[in-house]
Design a protein around this nucleic acid. Structure first.
Length: 577
RNA sequence: GGCGCGGUAGCUCAGUUGGUUAGAGCGAUCGACUCAUAAUCGAUAGGUCGGGAGUUCAAGUCUCCCCCACGCCA
């Protein structure tokens, strides 16, 4: 690993998944998986990377999920964090640290930011009326109050809207209101105070900042501009809630008079976890504070850091407006995002994946069916970059069988087995490159350049297509030169051909590792090689000399059978739990 | 209802600042090969680029109107 002083360091974060359950494949391809692809690629190029992710643990849904599970919320979150961490490992997500938004670091940092914002005059107090439930011992958000609609008499209308007649409601409009949590009718309206972040005064700063991002996708900037300019423009945002579970409202390390018993809103503290997570990473590795600050503070060494965020499109406003407002408002030199890669949604067989409805394939289930490389390859090569994409079982089967088993896996198989049967389990000797070899090398040099360009630009689908073409080039070369024929008349020429083909295996392994890390590791192991990013393709394809031993690998990718697919289609046609 | 993103070969999608015969992968058809996971390689496929009008020497690529799908919002 080189760490050249002139080289960019890459800070990479994936949107942090919420704690209340296991995520589905749509969530995976929307942030964590492409972030991992980019992190692995940059590491592969020898660049210094800090790749962070965490669980987002605060808020009402976590409390309710814990209650449903019959566990204290902190215990529930700790368990779910472990579950998500194990699944992330299962998909080979190579986080340098998988943190928790409930960490002490995030508590301290969130309170620090709130204090700075207050100091800079960007916080105001607002009095609101909210419904308090005696039985639940808590304030109820609008969605957690049910009652009879005064408009249509529907008896399950929610505090914000009646689903039956669509009329907008205030909780106080409901007849016979009750708690959606306990059903209790022992409710009262109380006045409560909350802190608002005065984002409106930061609008011009945010607008100017967004305008510098000319290389961002339209999807991203249009969402940000909408929030900045639509209607009355950017609105101030409540950053506190009347809950127990969360980060206590404090002004730095001082108490905040009037805010006792309140916590910060989950959307305020969650993005700050991106920073806090670096602190958790440092602590986990016994590193001093300076080691994580050099990633995040431009006054402490982060000038050469490129920061890239990955997220689904629903998260764009919070990353282009909410979080930057916190950072800009603090007046401190924290790193702002440089590249923001957002994804559309992946649909499942004509509908949406849905966590709440249990529709689609969830990450734990996917790993029970197949090794992670299958999912990684299909999801990444179909990443919903320009518009929503669709998962169907037949496409999944067809594409993975063709690309992984037939094009790549079979290439490795045919080359190693041919060499073993005609020569030995070592690279054969003799001969020199002819025009076909020179042409292949030149072609691959060009393709390598294109592949790198797409990876640098995080054009995931295009990178996958180029990688596939690089695999196919090996098959084209074999078909054209036909070593099985040349062997009969000119064994030395066949030796040249098969030596080159065998050298392609580690070359492919290194380039493919960001997409299919397990298969890449297998390929290297069988060839007795280790990953080294190719610069000069000619040199890379002569790295293994004649006489270098190898092992014929087991089938790299077994095909997905029609029977399996038929079985899975049925099994996943309904909903989970 | 308002706003946003889309509507390109059977399927999944590419198509920079408008410019020669609109591209790729898969599927399909035909052919080649036999080293290999019945794998591979090559060739072929005539899609009015959602519909209409306009700007222009020239529009899938700009403007306006309409239709359809999806999403967000009040």
């Amino acid at each position: 690993m080189t760490k050249g002083a002139n080289m960019t360091r890459h800070l990479i974060t994936s949107a942090i998944p919420y704690i209340n359950g296991i995520k589905h494949l749509g969530n995976l391809i929307g942030s964590q998986l492409p972030a991992d692809l980019f992190a692995r690629y940059q590491r592969g190029r020898g660049r210094e990377v800090l790749f962070l992710c965490a669980t987002d643990e605060h808020g009402t849904p976590a409390e309710l999920a814990a209650k449903k599970a019959g566990k204290p919320v902190d215990e529930f979150c700790a368990e779910m964090h472990e579950v998500q961490a194990r699944i992330a490992e299962g998909f080979r997500l190579s986080f340098d640290h998988f943190g928790r938004s409930s960490s002490p670091q995030n508590h301290a940092l969130t309170q620090h930011f709130a204090g700075k914002l207050q100091e800079n005059g960007l916080i105001r107090e607002v009095s609101e009326e909210q419904v308090y439930s005696h039985a639940d011992g808590r304030f109820l958000p609008d969605r957690y109050i049910e009652g009879t609609c005064p408009n249509c008499a529907y008896d399950k209308a929610r505090g914000d809207q009646c689903e039956n007649c669509t009329k907008q409601l205030d909780p106080t409009d409901l007849l016979e209101p009750r708690s959606a949590i306990s059903g209790s009718t022992d409710l009262e309206v109380r006045e409560t105070k909350h802190l608002f972040l005065r984002q409106s005064t930061l609008r011009d700063d945010l607008d100017a900042w967004i305008n510098t991002k000319t290389d961002w996708p339209v999807l991203t900037t249009s969402i940000a501009r909408k929030w900045l300019h639509d209607g009355d423009g950017l609105r101030d945002r409540g950053i506190t809630r009347d809950l127990d579970w969360g980060i206590s409202v404090k002004n730095g390390d001082q108490d905040w008079p009037g805010m006792e018993g309140k916590v910060f809103y989950v959307w305020f503290d969650a993005p700050i976890e991106y920073i806090a997570c670096a602190g958790e990473w440092a602590e986990a590795h016994d590193l001093p504070e300076a080691d994580w600050q050099r990633w995040w503070r431009t006054d402490k060494g982060a000038e050469d850091v490129t920061y890239t965020q990955f997220m689904g499109k629903d998260n764009v406003p919070f990353h282009t407006i909410g979080f930057p407002a916190t950072i800009l408002g603090s007046g401190e030199p924290w790193k702002l995002v440089d590249h923001l890669k957002s994804f559309n949604y992946l649909n499942y067989d004509g509908g949406q994946f849905s966590t709440s409805q249990g529709r689609g394939i969830f990450m734990d289930q996917a790993l029970e069916l197949l090794a992670p490389d299958y999912w990684r390859w299909w999801l990444l090569s179909h990443a919903p970059e320009s518009s929503d994409a669709e998962f169907t079982w037949s496409s999944f089967q067809q594409d993975t069988n063709k690309d992984l088993a037939d094009v790549l896996g079979n290439f490795v198989s045919r080359v190693t087995k041919f060499c073993r049967s005609k020569f030995s389990e070592a690279l054969p000797e003799g001969g020199e490159n002819g025009p076909e070899e020179i042409a292949l090398i030149a072609d691959l040099q060009e393709r390598l350049g294109r592949y790198q360009d797409h990876m640098e630009a995080i054009e995931v689908r295009k990178a996958a297509a180029e990688l596939r073409a690089i695999w196919a080039a090996g098959n084209e070369y074999l078909q054209e030169t036909a070593p099985w024929t040349t062997f009969k008349t000119d064994p030395e020429k066949a030796a040249v051909q098969i030596r080159l083909a065998l050298n392609l295996i580690p070359f492919y392994a290194t380039l493919s590792a960001p997409f299919i890390p397990d298969a890449a590791a297998n390929m290297h192991e069988n060839m007795g090689t280790s990953p080294e990013w190719p610069v000069d393709v000619n040199a890379a394809l002569h790295a293994l000399p004649a006489g270098h031993p190898f092992t014929v690998p087991e089938v790299l990718f077994a095909k997905i059978t029609d029977e399996s697919v038929a079985d899975w289609e049925v099994r996943f046609s309904g909903t989970r739990d």
